[in-house]
């Protein structure tokens, strides 16, 4: 069922790029671990958007399959990451990611 021409590949990808970059800015600027996680979600979501848009453009179900995998990944990642955040907060009583630098050389 062909739809209208407007939501096309390029605009969709552009949106995805903009969202990804916004998420990236957040990752670079924020120091609170919770926000970082949100920004990661934004980025993965942007990537997922790109997959879906491309899938729609090429008439392929692979884009949505990938979306499903991404969403699975995101779920697992958030679960683990939030658990880690909880541990981190319990031990350090802070959510500052810059305090988490025990692996410095």
């Amino acid at each position: 069922m062909p739809t209208e021409t407007l939501p096309d590949l390029l605009t969709g990808l552009t949106l995805s790029a903009i969202l990804f970059c916004l998420g990236l800015i957040g990752l670079l600027v924020r120091r609170n671990v919770i926000y970082l996680l949100m920004c990661v979600e934004i980025c993965t979501n942007a990537a997922a958007l790109a997959f879906v848009v491309a899938g729609a453009h090429w008439d392929s179900s692979d884009g949505q399959v990938m979306f499903i995998f991404i969403i699975t990944l995101a779920a697992a990642e958030v679960a683990i990451a939030l658990a880690l955040v909880l541990q981190f907060f319990r031990r350090r009583h802070t959510v500052d990611i810059d305090q988490l630098n025990g692996l410095r050389g």
Partner: peptide, 18 residues
């Protein structure tokens, strides 16, 4: 030199990544 770049700051790593 390389060792100082490994400073344990995740945001720094992301920036390098970028």
């Amino acid at each position: 030199l390389l060792s100082t770049s490994q400073n344990g700051l995740i945001r720094w790593y992301i920036a390098s990544f970028t």
